[in-house]
Design a protein around this nucleic acid. Structure first.
Lengths: 214, 214
DNA sequence: ATTAATATGGGGAAAAACACCCTTTTTGGG
DNA sequence: CCCAAAAAGGGTGTTTTTCCCCATATTAAT
């Protein structure tokens, strides 16, 4: 079995070096280079850097995040297999990542043996998914799942971002060029959809679901 | 030069294994064991596990966080030197950690060479601080720094946590066994201290400063 | 073409939040 | 014990939020 090349895309340098050291300790796997964000990886690939067999990709990164980057790879370098490596456990993030084409999704608290297994499986079977991720996927199939920001409209997302600021609704209405009464409607409908009782509930929801980033 | 023992306290297993692999690759350093939170470390020490020379300590952990754990070590095992290893950059967290007795504070995006240097320096000189942390410390000396949660009273902290829920102020008053009018006072005083205009501002502040955890 | 859904806007009222100025009670030194 | 400061509680407003009801215009679908 030949040696497979791996690239690590992760913004915390020490972590990427540490993971790199780990991957290099596995047989048949070798880290080619590190990138600190998605843009850097894409630039390197465009500049004819070596195309790795596998990319270990963090999700929360500055400049270009893991989801966008994975999508780009799927469309432009379909032979590169992406394994997501994240602390992120929220359903919609995981689903977005898998939709974008990730072949595996590992939480950062897995054992190193699992990482090795995942690398092998992705090479040999084309994918690797833990029971954890499978559960989340199955969960997402049931209809009650249908109140995540997936079906929040663009304007609602925009509104909910303003909700997380110190603006009053009247001021939000001005910013969005809408009547305060329309804003009333947005609010009430979101209260119902998200099952919250007041503006604080919206704020907490928005932050939990990364609609508004602290 | 003999070999120095290191323990890693970090809740994400893969990361602690990766960092472990990195530390073991350095000369003169050897990882004794891993712990996934502070409580686990303390239990092991009490059960006469080997006392390491250095603990690499994450800050955000379940059960017992890095600050509490470091404080405990300072009081009970003063010979164990703690190096904080965190993504956390907020001033007050760093200061709390240093007050608790950490001999070094590394952000997780340092180079591995810096980690090695830090380990050496902490053994030989007793401490290691990057320019980054030094800057933050100096910054904290200037008086305008005086509006962090350092000078928030216990009851205010308790109040601000309730503020981040969907409770009304009246309900918060009941939970805290205070008159709604007293709650009014807490709120007004926090608005002034933290320079925010309304409850949303408090929520955002609380989350930014880890008073309320999502 | 008709229907249904969606986005938009409105009136009015009750509840909650906010502002400002005040008094009483508790508490911690000296 | 006494004083000063901090904590707790109060009165009285205004503003904002929330919650009902409803109307109209536009768009999508059958």
């Amino acid at each position: 079995m030949e040696t497979h090349s791996v690239v690590i895309v992760e913004d915390h340098l020490l972590l990427s070096q540490a993971i790199s050291s780990l991957v290099n300790s596995f047989n048949h796997f070798n880290v080619s280079y590190l990138c600190s964000n998605g843009q850097e990886l894409i630039n390197k690939l465009k500049a004819n850097a070596k195309k790795p067999d596998i990319v270990l990709m963090d999700i929360n990164m500055p400049i270009m995040n893991g989801i966008e980057t994975t999508l780009f790879l799927k469309n432009n370098y379909p032979n590169i297999k992406v394994i997501a490596l994240s602390v992120e456990e929220s359903e919609d993030i995981i689903i977005k990542m898998l939709k974008a084409g990730a072949k595996g999704y590992l939480l950062k608290d897995v054992e190193k043996d699992i990482l090795e297994t995942a690398l092998f499986d992705v090479i040999n079977k084309g994918f690797y998914h833990t029971q954890n991720v499978t559960n989340i996927l199955i969960n997402s199939l049931n209809p009650e799942y249908k109140n995540n920001q997936n079906n929040l409209k663009e304007r609602e997302i925009e509104f909910i971002k303003h909700v997380c600021t110190e603006l009053t609704y009247k001021e939000i209405a001005e910013k969005m060029f809408l009547s305060p009464k329309t804003i009333d409607g947005y609010r009430d409908s979101l209260f119902y959809k998200l099952q919250v009782k007041n503006r604080i509930g919206l704020v907490i929801y928005a932050i939990k679901n990364k609609i508004y980033n602290i």
